[in-house]
Computed example of a mutant assay.
Amino acid sequence: MKLLIQNLREYLRADFHPRLYLATAAWLGLLITLNYTFDLEDVYIDSLRGSWKRPVLYILLYTTVYYVAMGLWTYYHHRPDLWRNRRFWLHTGVGWVAYGFYAGFYGYNRWSEQLLDGQIYLFAYYCLSNLHSLVTLVLPLYLYYRFFDNGAEHFYGLKPKRDGLTVYALLLLIMVPLIAFASFQPHFLDFYPTYKDTTANEFLGVPEWVTALVYELCYGWDFVPTELLFRGFMVIGLSRITAVDKNQSGVILPMVVAYASIHFGKPLGETLSSVLGGYLLGVLALSTQSIWGGLLIHLSIAWLMDGAAFVQQWAQQPAGLTP
């Protein structure tokens, strides 16, 4: 925990400006209010599944959210030079176009129909909805890394490191009782577990825990590209372009605002907690130059939330029924 406190102090000493943080909080508060008042993502953007408009709208959403937050940072830190930096535009442009395309992509529905139609279609749909990021997000980032980002020593924090793992473990322990409490809330159980019974196990002739496990592994994979983009590409990678020194890079606050926006379809409490979590994980990724700790804590929390919901479902079954 001393490492986390030390890293936070160093980063805040260089980055903190009261008006900047207030302005950023106001911008984030406006976005959250608009989304949860009008349900913009679920009602408007996600209603366009299968249309080219959906990824375009996601790209517009993420670029607007991010560049306004970055504009606030550059204004209060007197860094107009970033807007004249072509590498800044190329790097952030590639990141948000790739992520917007990934968020709006719906081709996995057709893949599921063509490759695994019939009783297994729905199960394939749920799995491929998490695995398609291999093609839609990880591949574009790797091509950029391979052919354009000559200054990158490794693939945006994916080089294994032990730095900060104790801190990540402590953060995870703090989350356990919070997840346990959340699992008793109706809104939590409306969303979790993300696994849904598709009867695919009956078609395949296996116990349902097998299909649930396969799904959870696919679900877990989807956090890899998320960490890669937000903490790897937009923090570790971008800091090499924007930094005056390690803590004067302007990469954390704009990333946090954009990171909160990808939770808009989830319960409000999860969106709010993503702000603090995104900030802490961003600072740790910047200091350790690794996303492994953040990836481990992200996966653990995701599986703990699904696991807690499974337990609640089992506990609420009528007496006499087997789980």
Rank of each mutant, 00 (worst) to 15 (best):
K2A: 07
L3T: 11
L3F: 13
I5A: 11
I5H: 06
Q6W: 12
N7R: 14
L8G: 11
A14E: 15
H17C: 13
R19C: 12
R19E: 04
L20T: 02
Y21S: 06
Y21R: 01
T24L: 10
L31G: 06
L34H: 05
T37F: 11
T37L: 13
D42A: 14
Y44K: 06
S47D: 10
K53G: 02
K53I: 10
P55I: 08
V56I: 12
V65H: 04
Y66V: 04
M70E: 12
M70F: 12
M70A: 14
G71S: 10
D81R: 07
L82E: 05
R84M: 11
N85A: 14
F88N: 03
W89H: 07
W89E: 01
H91I: 03
T92A: 03
T92P: 00
W96I: 02
W96A: 03
W96T: 04
A98D: 01
Y99M: 08
G100K: 13
A103E: 08
F105L: 08
W111D: 03
L115S: 06
I120M: 03
Y121A: 15
L122I: 12
Y126C: 05
L128D: 06
N130F: 11
N130D: 14
H132L: 08
H132V: 12
L141T: 00
L143Q: 05
R146Q: 15
D149T: 08
G151D: 08
E153K: 14
F155C: 00
L158R: 01
K161E: 00
R162H: 09
R162F: 07
D163K: 10
A169G: 10
L170M: 10
I174T: 13
P177A: 07
I179Y: 11
A180S: 01
A182V: 05
S183K: 08
H187L: 11
F191M: 06
T194S: 07
K196L: 09
T198A: 08
A200S: 13
N201K: 07
F203S: 14
V206W: 03
P207T: 11
E208Q: 15
E208G: 11
V210Q: 01
V210Y: 08
T211M: 02
T211L: 01
A212T: 09
C218I: 03
W221K: 04
L228A: 07
R231A: 00
M234N: 00
V235I: 05
S239H: 02
R240F: 12
T242H: 05
A243R: 01
K246M: 01
V251T: 11
L253V: 06
L253Q: 09
V256K: 14
A258T: 01
L280Q: 11
G282L: 05
W292S: 02
W292V: 05
W292C: 01
L295D: 00
I297D: 02
H298D: 09
L299Q: 04
L299F: 09
I301D: 08
I301V: 15
W303Q: 13
D306K: 10
A308C: 12
A308F: 07
A309E: 03
V311Q: 07
W314S: 08
A315P: 03
A319D: 02
A319V: 09
A319E: 10
A319Y: 11
G320Q: 04
L321I: 15
